[in-house]
């Protein structure tokens, strides 16, 4: 084998390694515990998120109506976005009150330099005017988005992620979120 060929192969290998490391590191956005799960819009998807954490073996506390004071000692805030009129009814608050709560909670989390993650699990049912204010509000300040594809048919989340340079993971089904979730908190 000529020396040039050897060099060429070596260079190619090196390049491949570099590229794969880069890709690998991109998919490895890391988060720390303790975790607080909250809702933005009071959909029952918080319960589903709680179930995902259980399946992924990651400890997390869920408080649907979390306030800034609940962030004490927390390292990662997971916001489950999506509006539900029944959920707001259950919480006994108006949509405006919920918007205010989420806004101030996110501001407090940013001030404390917590990592914020947005989950969108409810597909089309949690999209549309009523939901998208919550979806946008949470997603824009997140460093990671975990989205079930049906809720991103119009690229709402992927566009936002590209624009704000936020890592995003799209999964086909809610159950497929377990693996990326476990990875997020891998040591």
């Amino acid at each position: 084998m000529k020396r040039a060929q050897v060099l060429m192969i070596a260079a190619t290998l090196l390049l491949l390694t570099a590229v794969s490391t880069l890709l690998f590191s991109q998919s490895k956005v890391k988060f720390d515990q303790p975790v607080l799960i909250t809702s933005a819009g009071q959909s029952a998807d918080v319960t589903i998120a709680g179930m995902l954490f259980k399946k992924a073996n990651v400890q997390a506390r869920a408080i649907s109506l979390a306030k800034a004071s609940d962030l004490e000692g927390i390292k990662t805030l997971v916001v489950v976005a999506g509006f539900s009129s029944k959920g707001l009814g259950a919480a006994g608050i108006s949509r405006e009150q919920e918007l205010d709560r989420v806004k101030s909670l996110l501001a407090a989390a940013q001030e404390k330099k917590l990592k914020i993650v947005t989950f969108h699990l409810g597909g089309k049912a949690r999209r549309g005017n009523q939901s998208d204010d919550f979806n946008k509000m949470a997603a824009e300040v997140s460093s990671y988005l975990l989205v079930v594809k049906q809720g991103n048919e119009d690229q709402f989340f992927s566009k936002l992620a590209a624009e704000k340079k936020i890592a995003i993971e799209l999964v086909d089904k809610i159950a497929d979120a377990v693996q990326p979730l476990a990875k997020m908190f891998e040591k």
Binding site: S43, A44, I48, S84, K86, G92, A125
Partner: peptide, 12 residues
């Protein structure tokens, strides 16, 4: 089979 989960409002 996709479903949305909804909580029953306690005051309704």
């Amino acid at each position: 089979l996709q479903y949305a989960l909804e909580m029953s409002p306690p005051n309704f």
